[in-house]
Design a protein around this nucleic acid. Structure first.
Length: 316
DNA sequence: AAGTACTACAACCGCGGTATG
DNA sequence: TCATACCGCGGTTGTAGTACT
C-alpha cells in the first residue's frame, strides 16, 4: 500500500477541462478504478477520492447533467426515501442517469423548501396578519418533521399509523398526507396538490375519530409499495392555508373565515366545481410553480399507465 | 441598479467497510 | 491477525446563478 505523495500538494476545488481530460483518459485505459494511482503516477494532483467523485458525478457517460428531476423521478425519490431512508446511492440505482449526489441534493433542496414553507406558515407572535385569510387559528405547536416518515421497517410499516385503522391517538387529530397522481385529482374531493407531487390531505376534525378513507394511490411495479402518510397536527390548518398561498397559488379558500374551525377548502379552484361533483379527471390544468419549475412539465396523462394501489381494505 | 435571499449543485470531509501486504 | 490504504457513502459546505425587493 502506498506510501506516497505526502509532500505533493493536493489540488482541490473546481475541476478544469484539462484535468477532466486526464481523468477520462485514465478511465479509458484502466477503467473506473485505481483512483489513487492517478495521483501516484503524477497525472493529477487530485486525491483518488476526488477523482472518483468527479468521474461518478460529472464525467461518467449517460448522466443527466443539468436536467431537472422529472415528476416521475421526484415521486420515485420520495417513495424510495421513505423505504430506504437516506440511502442515496441505493436510490440512485433506480434512476438512470442520476447519481447519489444528484438524489441527495435534490432531496435536500426539497426539504429546505418544505422547511421554509412550514416555517413561514408557523405563526409568529408579533406579526399577526390583518387579512382574515391569514389569521390563523391555533398555534402551530408542532411542525411535522421534515424527515420522511420512518417506515423503513416492515413491522412499523404494517402497524398502526400507516394502516387504515386510523384510531391511533397519535394521528387521530391530524391530517394525512398522501401522494396521489395528478391525473387522479378529480377523484379526490378535498385534495391539495403539491405541484406535481400531490399530497392528499385528509383532514379530520378533532371531534371525530374517524378518518377519511384513504384513497388508492400509486403503484410502482418495481418498488415496494409505500404509504406516504405522516401526521400533521390539526393546527396545521394554517400551514395548509399558507401552503395554498405561497406554494400553489391555485387554490382558493372557500368560506374564508371558516379557517381553523371548519373543513379545509382544499379543492383547487382551477378544477372547478364540476370536478368536485362528478369526480372527473381534469384534462387541462395550469402547472403550479413550486417544486419543479419545468416549463415542459410532462403531460397530465403521464401517470395514466400507473396502476392504482389496492384499495385500503386490501392493505395489510 | 443594487442589495439581499434563495436555489441548485459541485466538491470536500469524516466515517465505516473492505482489500491487501 | 493486524495495520494500513483504498473505496464508497452520507453529511456538509461553498459558491455561482437567479429571483426578489
Amino acid at each position: 500500500m502506498a506510501h506516497h505523495n505526502a509532500t505533493v500538494e493536493v489540488k482541490k476545488g473546481p475541476w478544469k477541462a484539462e484535468e477532466d481530460q486526464v481523468l477520462i483518459n485514465h478511465v479509458k485505459r484502466f477503467g473506473p478504478r485505481d483512483w489513487s494511482s492517478i495521483r501516484s503516477k503524477g497525472l493529477l494532483q487530485r486525491t483518488g477520492k476526488s477523482c472518483r467523485l468527479r468521474w461518478v458525478n460529472k464525467l461518467r457517460p449517460n448522466l443527466k447533467n443539468g436536467v431537472k428531476f422529472s415528476a416521475e423521478e421526484e415521486r420515485t425519490v420520495i417513495e424510495l426515501q421513505a423505504e430506504f431512508g437516506n440511502k442515496w446511492a441505493k436510490i440512485a440505482t433506480y434512476l438512470s442517469g442520476r447519481t447519489d449526489n444528484d438524489v441527495k441534493n435534490f432531496w435536500s433542496s426539497r426539504q429546505k423548501r418544505l422547511a421554509r414553507i412550514l416555517q413561514t406558515s408557523a405563526p409568529s407572535s408579533s406579526n399577526s396578519p390583518k387579512n382574515p385569510k391569514e389569521a390563523k387559528a391555533p398555534a402551530f405547536h408542532e411542525i411535522p418533521s421534515l424527515e420522511a416518515p420512518k417506515f423503513s421497517s416492515s413491522t412499523e410499516e404494517e402497524s398502526g399509523t400507516n394502516s387504515q385503522s386510523c384510531s391511533s391517538p397519535h394521528i387521530s387529530d391530524s391530517m394525512m398526507i398522501k401522494m396521489v397522481p395528478l391525473s387522479d385529482l378529480g377523484q379526490y374531493p378535498g385534495l391539495l396538490t403539491y405541484e406535481h407531487s400531490l399530497f392528499q390531505f385528509n383532514y379530520t376534525p378533532s371531534d371525530k375519530n374517524t378518518f377519511v378513507e384513504p384513497q388508492p394511490h400509486l403503484s410502482y411495479p418495481s418498488i415496494p409499495q409505500l404509504q406516504q402518510d405522516f401526521a400533521l397536527p390539526v393546527e396545521s390548518q394554517d400551514f395548509i392555508s399558507r401552503l395554498d398561498h405561497t406554494f400553489l397559488d391555485v387554490f382558493e379558500l372557500a368560506g374564508g373565515s371558516a379557517l381553523g374551525t371548519a373543513q379545509l377548502p382544499m379543492l383547487p379552484s382551477f378544477l372547478g366545481p364540476e370536478i368536485a361533483k362528478n369526480g372527473e379527471t381534469p384534462c387541462a390544468m395550469t402547472t403550479p410553480n413550486s417544486f419543479i419549475d419545468d416549463d415542459d412539465f410532462p403531460p397530465i396523462d403521464m401517470f395514466d399507465h400507473i396502476e392504482p394501489l389496492p384499495s385500503p381494505s386490501e392493505w395489510s
